[in-house]
Nucleic acid binder design. Sequence first.
DNA 1: ACTGACAGTATTATTTTTCATACTGGTATG
DNA 2: CATACCAGTATGAAAAATAATACTGTCAGT
Lengths: 124, 124
Amino acid sequence: MEGTTDDASVPEVCVPSVVELNEFRQAVNMITGRWKIDILWVLLAGPMRFGELRRALPGITQHMLTAQLRALEADGLIARTAYAEIPPRVEYALTDNARALKPIFEGLADWARSLRRGHGSRLA
Amino acid sequence: MEGTTDDASVPEVCVPSVVELNEFRQAVNMITGRWKIDILWVLLAGPMRFGELRRALPGITQHMLTAQLRALEADGLIARTAYAEIPPRVEYALTDNARALKPIFEGLADWARSLRRGHGSRLA
DNA sequence: ACTGACAGTATTATTTTTCATACTGGTATG
DNA sequence: CATACCAGTATGAAAAATAATACTGTCAGT
């Protein structure tokens, strides 16, 4: 693998490197998932426990909530803290990494908004 | 047993608005797809025709290439130009909108890279 | 006449993702 | 005793995304 992109059909101008492409692809993968963005969004308001998250995300199943939380945790976007109490309490919070993502979120949202103004005739 | 935080399970602090959330979700959807990022990436180098794209993306099928191109076109990220020639020639190019997305791409890639440095102990 | 390039479409698998339910154990409440 | 809350698991079904393969029509070259 990792063969040099020697084919003449891809002129190498000022495009970002393949490495950069992969970084980007990873970053996008981290936030793709039916509920990931929603989860990050509600967690922006502050740490929450499992049940709160579930109630804050109408329509999500426990299964999916758990799965997406685990994925976000694995990617270092959220931190899970389990307190040894009765009844059990588990809190989820954004990590600094996730917070650093916020301005990019906003930039992307801005971009999407400007798109609309550009040629607004596309509505689903 | 405290009284729970009564009504609003979603405290509205400084979080971006729901509208902003939707904008963002849309923006992410536009670039989620097995090949979309790759397509945008190769198109950064300049306009290309269908066959060139296919060769530049090893492993993609014509079906998927067509589908993803159509989706990107519908979202206003690429422009399709068909020349009435023989043999047929169809060129795909990034739109200004897509180019405006580039700095955000880069910001996201930077973020992903800094993530790695932060806690590099994540092995697959 | 046969083959290949061009830019696709059509049809059918296969894989991945998401949804719908039911279940766990400990405790507190009715 | 029956119920519900807590934070999840387990299992199977449905839906969506992706892949594999074959086919369209025109023309140029052989």
